[in-house]
Design a protein around this nucleic acid. Structure first.
Lengths: 113, 113
DNA sequence: CTAGAATGCTCCGGGTCCGTAACGATCCTT
DNA sequence: AAGGATCGTTACGGACCCGGAGCATTCTAG
């Protein structure tokens, strides 16, 4: 991965956020974004407890994030059949498209010096 | 600026957001982040109306963002002496430090392949 | 000097999110 | 089979934010 000097790093951060704000879709919070990308980048399984520990956040925060992003169709809940106390967070087609589009925007904004 | 392939772009986005979530300071929303970086990256003057137009957002959104970030000490309001209807958004020392630290995190996360 | 335009703020009902605490369901140990 | 531990959710009161509409202040044009 390439290095980013201060000015370019900030410009990238600004440009991508501006793009997200300008379109009409609801913005994800930092917590929601982190949950979403964790699920799509790291290997399953993803549980509420595990996500809460990773983000250094309480469990209700994860529950609420899953509620909201589930409503948006970006993520799915499924009971773990092995241990029915657990909830497994799963990817969705819509979520995969969202993440892919996000990567495109980041890459594009990083590309234009 | 360097190019970022899909995987690296997403990992960067994830890692920086994770870092922001894990510390105890309150997270900025996408709108707040965009306002803050606009003020710190682009040339003054910055008005409520101008920021609202740029972000494609209503004026109360900017007013509220300035309230919150003013409370956090990241930004300052000042009446325009030339035209007292205008509010000029100004940088602060604390805001500059915040932005600088953000740039460090982005650069660091981008650097570690 | 007055009518209109422009600017940013406030108010409103409604929604989301916060952290803490309690809760039901499920599993595990004995 | 019973008691305790673990998991995710819900309840709660409080804070913030939303978009739309209306407002006071200030400037500008006639």
């Amino acid at each position: 991965m390439a290095t980013l000097d201060t000015a370019h790093a900030l410009k990238l951060w600004h440009d991508v956020h501006l793009e997200m704000v300008r379109d009409d879709e609801p913005d994800l919070s930092a917590r929601q974004m982190t949950v979403l990308l964790t699920v799509y980048l790291e290997a399953p399984p993803h549980t509420v407890r595990g996500l809460a520990a990773k983000l250094n956040v309480t469990k209700p925060v994860i529950t609420r994030a899953l509620d909201t992003m589930g409503r948006l169709g970006l993520l799915n809940r499924k009971r773990d059949p092995e241990d029915r106390r657990n909830v497994l967070v799963q990817r969705t087609v819509r979520g995969a498209l969202f993440v892919e589009k996000l990567a495109d925007v980041i890459g594009q904004k990083a590309g234009q010096v």
